[in-house]
Amino acid sequence: MKANLVQAINMALNQEMSKDKSVILLGEDIGIDGGVFRVTEGLYQKYKDRVFDTPLAESGIVGTSIGLALNGLKPVAEIQFEGFIMPALDQLISHASRIRNRSRGAFSVPIVIRSPIGGGIHALEHHSDSPETYFVHTPGLKVVIPSRPYDAKGLLISAIRDPDPVIFFEPKKIYRAFKEEVPEKEYTIPLGKANIIQEGDDLTIITYGSWVRETLKAVEGLKYSIEIIDLRTLKPLDVKTIIDSVSRTGRCVIVHEAPKTLGLAAEIIAIINEKALLSLQAPIERVTGYDTIVPLPKLEDYYMPNTERIKKSIEKVMNF
Protein backbone atom coordinates (compact mmCIF):
# COMPACT_ATOMS: atom_id res chain seq x y z
CA MET A 1 0.00 0.00 0.00
CA LYS A 2 0.99 3.64 -0.38
CA ALA A 3 2.11 4.93 2.99
CA ASN A 4 3.81 7.93 4.49
CA LEU A 5 6.43 7.68 7.23
CA VAL A 6 3.85 7.80 10.03
CA GLN A 7 1.77 5.04 8.47
CA ALA A 8 4.79 2.87 7.74
CA ILE A 9 5.96 3.06 11.34
CA ASN A 10 2.45 2.35 12.56
CA MET A 11 2.32 -0.68 10.31
CA ALA A 12 5.60 -2.00 11.69
CA LEU A 13 4.44 -1.57 15.29
CA ASN A 14 1.12 -3.19 14.52
CA GLN A 15 2.67 -6.19 12.81
CA GLU A 16 5.29 -6.80 15.46
CA MET A 17 2.69 -6.49 18.21
CA SER A 18 0.37 -8.95 16.55
CA LYS A 19 3.18 -11.41 15.97
CA ASP A 20 5.02 -11.11 19.27
CA LYS A 21 3.02 -10.78 22.47
CA SER A 22 6.06 -9.56 24.36
CA VAL A 23 6.13 -6.28 22.41
CA ILE A 24 4.55 -3.46 24.39
CA LEU A 25 4.31 0.28 23.81
CA LEU A 26 4.68 3.01 26.40
CA GLY A 27 4.97 6.77 26.33
CA GLU A 28 3.18 10.06 26.79
CA ASP A 29 -0.14 10.43 24.97
CA ILE A 30 0.41 7.32 22.84
CA GLY A 31 -2.87 5.67 23.88
CA ILE A 32 -6.25 7.24 23.15
CA ASP A 33 -4.56 10.22 21.56
CA GLY A 34 -2.46 8.01 19.29
CA GLY A 35 0.65 10.09 19.98
CA VAL A 36 1.02 13.77 19.19
CA PHE A 37 2.07 12.83 15.66
CA ARG A 38 -0.49 10.00 15.51
CA VAL A 39 2.19 7.36 14.99
CA THR A 40 0.50 4.93 17.39
CA GLU A 41 -3.02 5.70 16.15
CA GLY A 42 -5.41 2.79 16.63
CA LEU A 43 -2.96 0.58 18.50
CA TYR A 44 -4.43 1.27 21.93
CA GLN A 45 -7.84 0.24 20.68
CA LYS A 46 -6.39 -2.95 19.25
CA TYR A 47 -3.94 -3.95 22.00
CA LYS A 48 -5.43 -2.38 25.10
CA ASP A 49 -3.36 -4.31 27.59
CA ARG A 50 -0.08 -3.64 25.81
CA VAL A 51 -0.24 0.09 25.07
CA PHE A 52 0.39 2.38 28.02
CA ASP A 53 -0.03 6.10 28.51
CA THR A 54 2.62 6.81 31.10
CA PRO A 55 2.92 9.61 33.61
CA LEU A 56 4.87 12.56 32.25
CA ALA A 57 8.36 11.33 33.10
CA GLU A 58 10.97 10.47 30.51
CA SER A 59 13.49 9.04 32.94
CA GLY A 60 10.63 6.91 34.22
CA ILE A 61 9.69 5.77 30.73
CA VAL A 62 13.21 4.69 29.81
CA GLY A 63 14.13 3.40 33.25
CA THR A 64 11.07 1.16 33.45
CA SER A 65 11.60 0.09 29.84
CA ILE A 66 14.94 -1.28 30.97
CA GLY A 67 13.23 -3.19 33.77
CA LEU A 68 10.50 -4.45 31.46
CA ALA A 69 13.15 -5.72 29.08
CA LEU A 70 15.19 -7.31 31.86
CA ASN A 71 12.10 -9.33 32.66
CA GLY A 72 11.48 -10.59 29.17
CA LEU A 73 9.28 -8.00 27.46
CA LYS A 74 10.19 -5.92 24.44
CA PRO A 75 9.23 -2.34 25.19
CA VAL A 76 9.01 0.17 22.39
CA ALA A 77 8.93 3.51 24.17
CA GLU A 78 8.03 6.82 22.60
CA ILE A 79 9.68 10.03 23.70
CA GLN A 80 7.38 12.78 22.49
CA PHE A 81 10.12 15.01 21.05
CA GLU A 82 13.87 14.54 20.85
CA GLY A 83 14.31 17.56 23.11
CA PHE A 84 12.61 15.70 25.94
CA ILE A 85 14.84 12.65 25.82
CA MET A 86 17.31 14.54 28.00
CA PRO A 87 15.81 13.57 31.37
CA ALA A 88 16.29 9.95 30.23
CA LEU A 89 19.96 10.28 29.29
CA ASP A 90 21.01 8.97 32.66
CA GLN A 91 19.03 5.77 32.16
CA LEU A 92 20.28 5.37 28.59
CA ILE A 93 23.92 6.19 29.14
CA SER A 94 24.43 4.84 32.64
CA HIS A 95 22.33 1.71 32.23
CA ALA A 96 20.65 0.68 28.97
CA SER A 97 23.93 0.85 27.11
CA ARG A 98 26.01 -0.92 29.76
CA ILE A 99 23.96 -3.73 31.23
CA ARG A 100 25.07 -6.38 28.76
CA ASN A 101 28.70 -5.51 29.45
CA ARG A 102 28.24 -5.12 33.18
CA SER A 103 26.68 -8.56 33.49
CA ARG A 104 28.99 -10.16 30.92
CA GLY A 105 25.98 -11.01 28.83
CA ALA A 106 23.78 -12.44 31.56
CA PHE A 107 21.36 -9.53 31.13
CA SER A 108 20.50 -7.55 28.04
CA VAL A 109 18.22 -4.64 27.24
CA PRO A 110 16.29 -5.16 23.99
CA ILE A 111 14.42 -1.88 24.04
CA VAL A 112 13.56 0.56 21.27
CA ILE A 113 13.26 4.25 22.04
CA ARG A 114 11.34 5.99 19.26
CA SER A 115 11.41 9.75 18.99
CA PRO A 116 10.83 12.39 16.36
CA ILE A 117 13.94 14.36 15.45
CA GLY A 118 15.00 17.49 13.66
CA GLY A 119 13.65 20.84 12.61
CA GLY A 120 11.89 22.34 9.68
CA ILE A 121 8.41 22.37 11.17
CA HIS A 122 8.61 25.84 12.77
CA ALA A 123 8.10 24.62 16.29
CA LEU A 124 8.80 25.79 19.82
CA GLU A 125 12.18 25.50 21.53
CA HIS A 126 13.34 21.90 22.15
CA HIS A 127 11.13 20.62 19.32
CA SER A 128 13.64 20.98 16.48
CA ASP A 129 16.90 19.52 17.72
CA SER A 130 19.24 16.94 16.25
CA PRO A 131 20.89 15.26 19.24
CA GLU A 132 21.93 12.00 17.52
CA THR A 133 25.61 12.43 18.35
CA TYR A 134 25.06 11.94 22.09
CA PHE A 135 23.70 8.49 21.38
CA VAL A 136 26.13 7.57 18.62
CA HIS A 137 28.90 8.50 21.03
CA THR A 138 27.59 6.10 23.66
CA PRO A 139 28.99 2.57 23.38
CA GLY A 140 26.19 0.03 23.69
CA LEU A 141 23.46 1.98 21.91
CA LYS A 142 22.44 1.57 18.29
CA VAL A 143 21.06 4.55 16.40
CA VAL A 144 18.74 4.43 13.39
CA ILE A 145 17.30 7.29 11.32
CA PRO A 146 15.20 6.32 8.31
CA SER A 147 14.73 8.64 5.36
CA ARG A 148 11.63 7.12 3.81
CA PRO A 149 8.55 5.05 4.62
CA TYR A 150 9.78 1.80 3.05
CA ASP A 151 12.98 1.84 5.08
CA ALA A 152 11.24 2.98 8.25
CA LYS A 153 9.10 -0.12 8.36
CA GLY A 154 11.89 -2.59 7.68
CA LEU A 155 14.32 -0.86 10.01
CA LEU A 156 11.85 -0.58 12.88
CA ILE A 157 11.03 -4.28 12.69
CA SER A 158 14.75 -5.04 12.83
CA ALA A 159 15.15 -2.64 15.74
CA ILE A 160 12.36 -4.33 17.70
CA ARG A 161 13.92 -7.75 17.09
CA ASP A 162 17.42 -6.53 17.90
CA PRO A 163 18.88 -7.86 21.15
CA ASP A 164 20.31 -4.47 22.15
CA PRO A 165 18.94 -0.99 22.85
CA VAL A 166 18.11 0.94 19.70
CA ILE A 167 17.36 4.65 19.46
CA PHE A 168 15.02 5.05 16.52
CA PHE A 169 14.79 8.66 15.40
CA GLU A 170 12.01 9.67 13.02
CA PRO A 171 12.62 12.83 10.98
CA LYS A 172 9.47 14.74 11.82
CA LYS A 173 9.76 17.05 8.86
CA ILE A 174 9.03 14.15 6.50
CA TYR A 175 6.43 12.39 8.67
CA ARG A 176 3.79 13.24 6.09
CA ALA A 177 5.89 14.72 3.31
CA PHE A 178 5.42 11.91 0.81
CA LYS A 179 4.06 8.43 0.34
CA GLU A 180 5.60 5.45 -1.34
CA GLU A 181 4.82 1.79 -1.80
CA VAL A 182 5.25 -0.02 1.49
CA PRO A 183 4.53 -3.75 1.27
CA GLU A 184 1.98 -5.04 3.74
CA LYS A 185 3.91 -8.23 4.13
CA GLU A 186 6.55 -8.40 6.76
CA TYR A 187 10.12 -7.58 5.79
CA THR A 188 13.24 -6.36 7.53
CA ILE A 189 16.12 -4.11 6.61
CA PRO A 190 19.25 -5.00 8.53
CA LEU A 191 20.64 -2.45 10.96
CA GLY A 192 24.08 -1.23 10.01
CA LYS A 193 23.50 -1.31 6.25
CA ALA A 194 23.56 1.91 4.30
CA ASN A 195 21.63 2.34 1.09
CA ILE A 196 23.05 3.70 -2.12
CA ILE A 197 20.22 5.92 -3.30
CA GLN A 198 21.89 6.92 -6.52
CA GLU A 199 25.08 5.63 -8.11
CA GLY A 200 27.82 7.86 -9.49
CA ASP A 201 31.53 8.13 -10.16
CA ASP A 202 32.59 11.73 -9.52
CA LEU A 203 31.55 12.40 -5.97
CA THR A 204 29.99 10.67 -2.95
CA ILE A 205 27.44 12.47 -0.83
CA ILE A 206 26.78 10.87 2.53
CA THR A 207 23.67 11.85 4.45
CA TYR A 208 20.65 10.48 6.34
CA GLY A 209 17.16 11.27 7.54
CA SER A 210 15.27 14.16 5.98
CA TRP A 211 18.45 15.33 4.23
CA VAL A 212 18.37 12.48 1.74
CA ARG A 213 15.50 14.15 -0.09
CA GLU A 214 17.07 17.59 0.15
CA THR A 215 20.29 16.20 -1.26
CA LEU A 216 18.45 14.63 -4.16
CA LYS A 217 16.93 18.04 -4.85
CA ALA A 218 20.30 19.73 -4.61
CA VAL A 219 21.97 17.47 -7.17
CA GLU A 220 19.15 17.70 -9.68
CA GLY A 221 20.47 19.05 -12.97
CA LEU A 222 24.13 19.09 -11.88
CA LYS A 223 26.55 17.94 -14.52
CA TYR A 224 28.47 15.57 -12.23
CA SER A 225 27.96 11.87 -11.70
CA ILE A 226 27.06 11.79 -8.01
CA GLU A 227 26.69 8.86 -5.69
CA ILE A 228 24.35 9.38 -2.74
CA ILE A 229 24.58 7.21 0.34
CA ASP A 230 21.73 7.14 2.85
CA LEU A 231 23.31 5.82 6.04
CA ARG A 232 20.01 4.67 7.60
CA THR A 233 21.88 3.39 10.66
CA LEU A 234 24.33 5.77 12.34
CA LYS A 235 25.57 3.18 14.81
CA PRO A 236 26.85 0.74 13.78
CA LEU A 237 28.06 2.68 10.77
CA ASP A 238 28.32 0.93 7.40
CA VAL A 239 32.00 1.65 6.94
CA LYS A 240 32.37 -0.67 3.99
CA THR A 241 29.81 1.10 1.83
CA ILE A 242 31.35 4.46 2.67
CA ILE A 243 34.91 3.39 1.95
CA ASP A 244 34.05 1.48 -1.23
CA SER A 245 32.29 4.52 -2.59
CA VAL A 246 34.80 7.17 -1.59
CA SER A 247 37.71 5.03 -2.78
CA ARG A 248 36.06 5.02 -6.19
CA THR A 249 34.92 8.64 -6.43
CA GLY A 250 37.78 10.25 -4.50
CA ARG A 251 35.51 13.10 -3.47
CA CYS A 252 33.03 13.41 -0.64
CA VAL A 253 30.47 15.78 0.84
CA ILE A 254 28.65 14.96 4.08
CA VAL A 255 25.31 16.54 4.93
CA HIS A 256 23.57 16.60 8.30
CA GLU A 257 21.42 18.96 10.31
CA ALA A 258 23.09 18.41 13.67
CA PRO A 259 25.66 20.99 14.78
CA LYS A 260 29.04 20.77 13.11
CA THR A 261 31.31 20.09 16.07
CA LEU A 262 31.48 16.34 16.66
CA GLY A 263 28.55 15.82 14.32
CA LEU A 264 28.52 12.51 12.48
CA ALA A 265 30.47 14.06 9.61
CA ALA A 266 33.50 14.44 11.86
CA GLU A 267 33.57 10.70 12.53
CA ILE A 268 33.05 9.80 8.89
CA ILE A 269 35.91 12.05 7.84
CA ALA A 270 38.14 10.41 10.42
CA ILE A 271 37.22 6.95 9.13
CA ILE A 272 37.90 7.98 5.54
CA ASN A 273 41.22 9.38 6.72
CA GLU A 274 42.10 6.07 8.26
CA LYS A 275 40.96 3.87 5.42
CA ALA A 276 40.94 5.78 2.16
CA LEU A 277 43.03 8.90 2.54
CA LEU A 278 45.14 8.21 -0.52
CA SER A 279 42.08 7.94 -2.77
CA LEU A 280 41.00 11.46 -1.93
CA GLN A 281 41.31 14.05 -4.64
CA ALA A 282 39.92 16.91 -2.60
CA PRO A 283 39.34 17.71 1.06
CA ILE A 284 35.99 16.44 2.29
CA GLU A 285 33.29 19.08 2.76
CA ARG A 286 30.60 19.00 5.39
CA VAL A 287 27.29 20.82 5.23
CA THR A 288 25.80 20.91 8.72
CA GLY A 289 23.88 22.95 11.20
CA TYR A 290 25.88 25.67 12.89
CA ASP A 291 27.29 25.23 16.38
CA THR A 292 24.34 26.88 18.04
CA ILE A 293 20.91 26.32 19.55
CA VAL A 294 18.34 25.69 16.85
CA PRO A 295 16.68 29.09 16.38
CA LEU A 296 12.97 29.71 16.78
CA PRO A 297 10.99 29.87 13.52
CA LYS A 298 11.97 33.41 12.50
CA LEU A 299 15.62 32.47 12.09
CA GLU A 300 15.38 28.71 11.85
CA ASP A 301 16.04 28.53 8.12
CA TYR A 302 19.42 30.19 8.54
CA TYR A 303 20.51 27.38 10.80
CA MET A 304 19.61 24.60 8.43
CA PRO A 305 21.70 23.17 5.66
CA ASN A 306 19.95 23.83 2.35
CA THR A 307 20.23 22.94 -1.29
CA GLU A 308 22.29 26.07 -1.98
CA ARG A 309 24.84 25.19 0.67
CA ILE A 310 24.98 21.62 -0.57
CA LYS A 311 25.54 22.80 -4.15
CA LYS A 312 28.27 25.17 -3.04
CA SER A 313 30.10 22.39 -1.29
CA ILE A 314 29.76 20.11 -4.30
CA GLU A 315 31.30 22.77 -6.52
CA LYS A 316 34.08 23.35 -4.04
CA VAL A 317 34.99 19.69 -3.92
CA MET A 318 34.67 19.20 -7.67
CA ASN A 319 36.75 22.25 -8.48
CA PHE A 320 39.46 21.73 -5.91
Binding site: E28, D29, G31, I32, D33, V36, D53, P55, L56
Partner: peptide
Amino acid sequence: YAISVPVSKQT
Protein backbone atom coordinates in the same frame (compact mmCIF):
# COMPACT_ATOMS: atom_id res chain seq x y z
CA TYR B 1 -4.97 17.23 31.79
CA ALA B 2 -1.45 16.81 30.55
CA ILE B 3 -2.25 16.90 26.85
CA SER B 4 -4.49 13.80 26.66
CA VAL B 5 -3.61 12.23 29.98
CA PRO B 6 -6.12 12.99 32.76
CA VAL B 7 -4.76 13.63 36.20
CA SER B 8 -6.27 10.33 37.38
CA LYS B 9 -3.75 8.54 35.15
CA GLN B 10 -0.94 10.87 36.16
CA THR B 11 -0.98 10.10 39.87
